[in-house]
Amino acid sequence: MEKIFQKLSLTSATLVFVLLIGIFLTLYSAAKPAIDEFGFDFITNPDWNKEVVLENLDDEAIIDEDDVAIADEDDAEIADEDDVILDEDEMLLDDEDETATKTIYGGLVPIVGTLLTTLIALAFALPIAMGIAVFLAEIAPKNISYVVGIAIELLAAIPSIIFGMWGLYYFAPIISDLFGGYQVSLLTAGLVLGVMILPFMAAITRDSMNTTPAVLKESAYALGATKFEVIKDIIFPYSKVGIIGSIILALGRALGETMAVAFLIGSVFVLPQKITDPTISIPVAMANNFGEASGLGESALFYLALILFIISFAVISLAKFYFLKKAK
């Protein structure tokens, strides 16, 4: 019985390992056709299946249409200039004899969209979250800090789809009035994402700040330091690693967030020229296209999923194993 129980628990634990490897391998094998087809140029190529593009965008997309064979079968080694020439040649060919055109998929737009929305979210949420954390940890009286702290933690538990709906119908109109541009845009998506990660970021930053021993603060006060000086010179340096870890963890969350962004980013495969332009992110590309996609298109979505998985794996490992471990 003892043996059975032990084996059982070992099996469950190993399942985690198997799952993680399984996710990676499954994504990889599903992405394989796209990886073979587009190689690493996938990351720098801004063109995605034109049908999606045509909905909202017009001429440019048509010019780009079918500029086939970027990195066709492993000629990734060939320098960029050669690539361009090749492209033009083949495009001419394609245009003349209207034979089988290949649809190509490039991941640049969603990758850029993911990074930019995350960046905007971070720029917006970081100062406010720090302010909230300082308020909760150092300024507010205990009972207020407790109540507000719980409120913040509960808000962090609200399903992200609700942030998305609120953003689209109530927040975006105001932003687009203020800054011009579309209601669905990089800016509004980034800001709503920022509002969404705000409670999470504030709560874990507060937890990091709370690890500063009270005596350390007291000894600074005992030297005549003001509250600001204690926060700046003692608490921040002391909990620096933990705070950075918390921020990166929030960033990891923002990178992979789907629903808060899906309502607002516009979901078009176009590189944004301005911050008020619509575009798309990796999770949203997956959310909105998985159903319809098949063949190479579906594989390209898996390629995107793999990229997202690797990025967030790296970001989360960095936060957890470098910063947060060190903070303990």
Binding site: V215, E218, S219, A222, L223, A225, D233, P237, Y238
Partner: peptide, 30 residues
């Protein structure tokens, strides 16, 4: 002012997260 006149040392040492010099200079700087 009071705390500059009446200093305090605690049970456990409380070095600030900074260099030795900055620790001693801290009270002077502020």
């Amino acid at each position: 002012k009071l705390r500059q006149k009446v200093g305090m040392i605690f049970q456990k040492p409380t070095p600030f997260p900074m260099s030795i010099f900055d620790n001693v200079a801290y009270g002077l700087r502020i």
